[in-house]
Design a binder for these strands. Structure first.
Length: 561
RNA sequence: GUCCCAGUAGCUCAGCUGGAUAGAGCAACAGCCUUCUAAGCUGUGGGUCGCAGGUUCGAAUCCUGCCUGGGACGCCA
């Protein structure tokens, strides 16, 4: 049941091949105003071919079109507005959804293919800040959407557990830290040391060199440094796991940067064999001038490796290990050049699959108009924000539905859903200004609004469950906007994956909720008349799509709230 | 200096593969719960779509230049 092809085919029949069905479909528009029908075909192009005014053509052609699927075609100016046969269309749409249930919107084009998704990837020994929320929820949603499209996904948490920062941390710990403080409150203590290091290093730059030397020691397998590193990493993971559980995010691998420490030599040798490695100011780089990119640093002058070295190594490992058809990196936009460099170096090494790697950038979480800086200690902790959201949800429940059974569970789903949805409803490229008040808003265009709509639908179905599978279809003007929205879900899922934009689903859910709530306000669903059953099917289908859409964003849909 | 992203209602944002009268939410104001969950619905007010050119029958949307904000640009990640 594809409105556009039905209408396009009808038009093509009467225009003597001046335009192909595909060309017609391409021009088809969805009118902004409901009184303009379900589809609009502008006649400007035809006017050129037929050497008549578009208005005349619209008038003439509108009268020719006859199809059981189309109720009427109306010429308004140069437009031919098509009104679908609501009864017939809704019958098919509702049947499909009611029959497929949560499988509605599933695609097969990804079957047999694997996508690796590198996301979240927080730095060890630092608290999980609001800044990490974006990568985590966007990556998680993309993984869920990809799975809905048939792909097998490998979710990789490329932990920032290696690099000069550990040199800094170890130096700071040895100078100013003590075991007791760190043991008592690991992340906080380590983070304090990290911030302290940056403060001191500003006055005494020599500390930076000390840190670099210390990281080199770590890379070379120095016992004491390795012991500290192992400890720091373990404590951090414990902390992160708590957050991931709260958010409901899972990973298939926690292979961080350190994992590739003993695998990088192969890459360096490969680059040397192909004469790609060049000495420059004492460091080893790959020149990328031909692509107008700055050189990619592979090895520092002290011989230690860099971020790019590890990412290249990781890509090779992943290709061998997972044989990905596509590799996605959900990492902030400030790293765009880095990924261009990494992908290009892999291409220069002769790996064709480097063309299947894509950086999915996103905007910053801003605080006071600026990027949050971990180095200066200016962070907002995600854990605190989540706790605040859950608390607020609890208050809301107490106020609005005190009789609710499992309050704590629902509060968690609603509070956390609000935070995730707030992040995902924006275009991923846009920066998001951190605004706690806005994030904890439960009314209007929010996650709880969608959840509430779902809960409302569920409440009706509890009172009057759908009793049989037959669907006759609805032809009233109130249900039609809801049915049309439901019909769009599969294409939204696909578009959302192709553009790596979970926000498309988030906005779709808001629109669907709005249409459903309008319907709910205008029509007494449980009214006992011959259409009761079909209305209940519509409610059931709406609930299914709302729940499934939220699931794709990593958000729960409680049945009561 | 070069490159990337953004600039649309008081605020937060959709719309951007060109098409009819530029849409939501928040905030403000006015209504709607003896009837399916008011975390909802209905209505009112609010816009030189950053600026200036250009392409086109038609530009918020495409092109060029400029302005503003954010970011990136070899030994951090």
């Amino acid at each position: 049941m594809d409105f556009i092809s039905i209408y396009s085919q009808q038009i093509a029949r009467h225009i003597n091949g001046m335009l192909s069905v595909e060309e017609i479909a391409e021009m088809m528009e969805e009118p902004k105003l409901t009184q303009h029908g379900d589809l609009a075909f502008p006649c400007f192009q035809l006017a050129k071919h037929m050497k008549q005014s578009p208005n005349e053509i619209a008038k003439w052609l509108a009268e020719k079109i006859k199809s059981p699927s189309i109720a009427k075609v109306e010429a308004i100016g140069p437009y031919m507005n098509c009104f679908m046969n609501k009864k017939r269309a809704s019958k098919q749409i509702l049947r499909t959804i009611y029959h497929q249930k949560q499988a509605y919107g599933t695609h097969q084009f990804g079957e047999g293919k694997t996508i690796t998704i590198d996301f979240s990837s927080p730095n060890i020994a630092k608290p999980f800040s609001m800044g990490h929320l974006r990568s985590t929820v966007i990556g998680n949603a993309i993984a869920l959407i990809a799975e809905k499209c048939g792909y097998q996904t490998v979710r990789i948490n490329h932990l920032g557990d290696w690099g000069t920062q550990f040199g800094k941390l170890i130096v700071a710990y040895e100078r100013w830290g003590d075991e007791k403080t760190v043991k008592a409150n690991p992340i906080q203590a380590l983070f304090a040391l990290y911030v302290l290091f940056h403060e001191k290093a500003e006055k005494h730059p020599i500390l930076n060199e000390e840190a670099r030397a210390c990281f080199k020691k770590l890379e070379d397998g120095d016992g004491e440094a390795t012991q500290l590193w192992t400890w720091f990493r373990k404590e951090s993971l414990k902390e992160f796991t708590k957050i991931y559980e709260l958010l409901g995010v899972t990973f298939d691998a926690y292979t961080g940067e350190a994992f590739y420490n003993d695998k990088m030599q192969d890459v360096i040798s490969m680059l040397q064999e192909r004469d790609l490695l060049v000495r420059s100011d004492g460091a080893d780089v790959v020149n990328l001038e031909e692509a107008d990119l700055p050189p990619c640093l592979i090895r520092k002058s002290d011989g230690a490796t860099l971020y790019a070295t590890r990412d290249i190594t990781a890509a090779l490992y992943r290709q061998v290990h997972y044989q990905f058809d596509k590799a996605i990196y959900v990492v902030g936009q400030e790293q765009a050049i880095h990924f261009q460099q990494v992908f290009l170096v892999l291409q220069k090494l002769g790996f064709d699959w480097a063309g299947n790697m894509v950086h999915v950038p996103f905007g910053f979480m801003l605080k006071d108009g600026k990027k949050m800086s971990t180095r200066k200690g200016k962070v907002v902790l995600l854990e605190e924000v989540l706790a605040e959201a859950v608390k607020l949800a609890e208050q809301n429940i107490e106020e609005k539905n005190p009789a609710l059974g499992n309050k704590a569970d629902v509060a968690k789903k609603v509070g956390i859903g609000a935070v995730i949805f707030h992040d995902l409803k924006h275009d991923r490229q846009n920066s998001v200004a951190f605004n706690l008040e806005e994030m904890l808003q439960f009314e209007g265009a929010t996650g709880p609004y969608v959840q509430y709509t779902h809960a409302r639908a569920c409440a009706i179905l509890r009172k009057a469950p759908v009793s049989q599978d037959m669907v006759e279809g609805l032809d009233d003007e109130f249900s039609w906007p809801v049915i049309k929205k439901l019909h769009h879900f599969p294409e939204i899922v696909m578009a959302s994956l192709h553009s790596y934009e979970p926000s498309k689903i988030a906005r779709f859910l808001l629109e669907l909720s709005q249409e459903f709530n309008r319907y709910y306000g205008k029509v007494k669903i449980l009214h006992d008349d011959p259409h009761l059953h079909d209305r209940l099917v519509l409610v059931a289908c709406s609930a299914t799509v709302l729940k499934e859409g939220l699931r794709l964003l990593g958000i729960h849909a409680p049945e009561e709230m």
